[in-house]
């Protein structure tokens, strides 16, 4: 039964004036949130669109010059924009599959008859409650050349380790790896809870049919967990696209501009190059990309599973 049906059956033959009273109360109860929401979310969203059509003057906004879609056109030939888009996609490709598969593995492992399940769950989840600065600062030290433990131990084995965060090849993977440690816990908890709500009798039935564990995984676990997996993929996609803190703190976008991501570029355009209009246009385009990717992913999953 829908909310609507329940409400109308509840109200039965109440008078029209009741409805008016509920309208007023409804508005009063909604007002505080709607005011915040409109002022600090909707209004900026619209104003951003407006600003993106201007050569915005941050000091004297009224002197801003209307330039139509030039800010959008500029992106086409802006090498730094394409570079940051490429870097962001690379980061997404590195992290999303890795985090999803890794946290699925952890969830399935912890779901088994394992001693100390509560402790394991707490350990795997814990990095997620750290702020990005703490996570980044710790890993700067772990990756450090000269005294960092990772390189010290690698040198012992005779490998000549790279300067992780200064290397063209390794800087982004190093950030991706640190990110996996940092945020996998969120996906892990969701996948674990989804796995635990798969009814056991399905597995017992499959066992009676002689299905091995691989088939049980493929035919029961995956389909039963698909909503949770879908959610985890989407949320990681959205997060990865918005990566800012890790490269901002760990590499400043270097070496070269290898780890300058979209949001970092937007930040630099706004507060370093002082081009608010272009930055607002960038924000809009990034949102567009994000929406398209989310929907594409949605249809992809639909197609596979239903």
């Amino acid at each position: 039964m829908s909310t609507k049906d329940q409400l109308s059956s509840l109200k039965g033959g109440f008078l029209e004036q009741r409805s008016n009273k509920e309208l007023i109360e409804g508005i009063l109860f909604s007002l505080p949130y709607l005011a915040t929401f409109s002022l600090f979310l909707l209004y900026p969203l619209l104003k951003g669109g407006y600003m993106s059509l201007f050569e915005w003057n941050p000091f004297f906004p009224s002197e801003s010059e209307f330039i139509g879609v030039q800010n959008y056109a500029r992106m086409m030939s802006d090498g730094a924009f394409w570079n940051s888009l490429g870097n962001t996609l690379y980061f997404v490709v590195l992290t999303v599959p890795m985090i999803v598969i890794f946290s699925l593995g952890l969830a399935l492992g912890v779901n088994r008859d394992i001693k100390g399940r509560g402790v394991l769950r707490a350990v795997f989840f814990s990095p997620y409650i750290l702020t990005v600065s703490v996570a980044a600062l710790i890993w700067i030290e772990l990756y450090a050349t000269g005294y960092g433990p990772i390189n010290s131990y690698l040198s012992l084995t005779g490998i000549n380790p790279p300067a992780w965060l200064q290397s063209y090849t390794w800087a982004m993977p190093a950030i991706a790896f640190m990110t996996m440690w940092w945020i996998s816990g969120f996906s892990f908890v969701i996948l674990l809870s989804a796995r635990q709500s798969v009814p056991e009798y399905l597995y017992e039935a499959a066992k009676l049919d002689g299905a091995g564990s691989w088939r049980a995984f493929r035919d029961i676990t995956l389909p039963q967990m698909r909503h949770a997996i879908f959610f985890v993929v989407i949320i990681n996609l959205v997060w990865s696209f918005q990566i800012f803190g890790q490269p901002y703190i760990m590499t400043h976008g270097g070496p070269g501009k290898e780890t300058e991501t979209l949001v970092m570029y937007l930040y630099n355009v706004a507060f370093n190059q002082r081009n608010f209009g272009y930055a607002a246009a960038l924000g809009y385009v990034l949102t567009g990309i994000l929406v398209v990717v989310s929907f594409a992913n949605y249809y992809l999953f639909r197609g596979n599973n239903e």
């Binding site: 200064q166 063209y168 400043h252 976008g253 270097g254 070496p255 070269g256 501009k257 630099n268 370093n272």
Partner: peptide, 18 residues
């Protein structure tokens, strides 16, 4: 922004032989 590191990364690239 002449002191901003991102305007000098090319120099580091040369030094690091990237």
């Amino acid at each position: 922004d002449i002191y901003d590191q991102t305007n000098w990364t090319w120099l580091l690239d040369a030094y690091a032989h990237n």
